[in-house]
Structure formats: C-alpha cells, structure tokens
Design a protein around this nucleic acid. Structure first.
Length: 112
DNA sequence: TCGGTGACTCGTG
DNA sequence: ACACGAGCCACCG
C-alpha cells in the first residue's frame, strides 16, 4: 500500500526542522524548496501546525522569509516562541529575529 | 462537489 | 518604497 505522498512531505518537514541546530533559524520557503515543493511554503506551515500533535518539533526555529515570528500565535502562548528562541541565544526584537541573515540555516546548503 | 482559508513567497505596477 | 494579485496545496463546512 502506497502511502499518500503528502504524509511523506509532512514527515520530511519534521525531519528537517528537527535537524535545525540550536541557535539557528530557517524559513518556510527554504524547507519547501529543499523538499522540492518550492511554491508550497504554506504547506510547511500547515505541517508545523500538525507537528504540535506529533513528536517534539522545534517549530519555533522556523520563521517567515523576513525573520518575523508569524506563527507565534499558534503556540501555547504567543510569547512561547520568542522565549524559546531567546533560550537558544537568539535575540528577538518586535517579533523579528535579530541578525536573521546570520542565523539563517539553509538545509539546501548547510545540510548538503 | 465547491468554495473559502491559511505558520508563505515572488512578481508587477 | 508600498500595495495588490497570483501560485501553491491541504483542511474544513
């Protein structure tokens, strides 16, 4: 029985997110591109929502292309995302990751 | 079955 | 620089 490919996609998202090193962040588009679904950045976000009920997924390490914590509203608390990021040494100002381009972790390049 | 919505991103005016 | 639209795919009513 062939499983739905979307399940594989979700699993891939979880794997990549779990591979993000502490103190680093990445974007939805980067993950989608790495998985081959370049235009499906939205699906990555959807997978992150589902990740809540799956294994321990550091979804707080995933932000949008601008380094903005767009998904913080989906956490247990809107401050949980920023708090978790600061625990890893990441600075957050105005719901945005400071030095985002420096902390940016691209799976297509780092995970090569 | 169809339409609306959403943790996004890029191109155009 | 800003505003708007289009593309993308899964979930819900």
């Amino acid at each position: 029985m062939a499983k739905s490919k979307d399940e594989n996609f979700f699993q891939n998202v979880y794997e990549v997110v779990k591979l993000i090193p502490a103190g680093r962040v990445t974007s939805y588009g980067a993950i989608a591109s790495y998985l081959g679904s370049k235009g499906s950045a939205r699906m990555v976000g959807w997978a992150l929502i589902a990740s809540h009920a799956t294994s321990n997924i550091p979804a707080y390490r995933v932000v949008n292309r601008n380094g903005l914590l767009t998904g913080k509203q989906h956490f247990e608390s809107p401050d949980a995302m920023q708090a978790s990021l600061e625990q890893e040494g990441i600075r957050v100002k105005n719901d945005r990751v400071v030095d985002f381009d420096k902390l940016f972790w691209d799976p297509a390049k780092e995970l090569l």
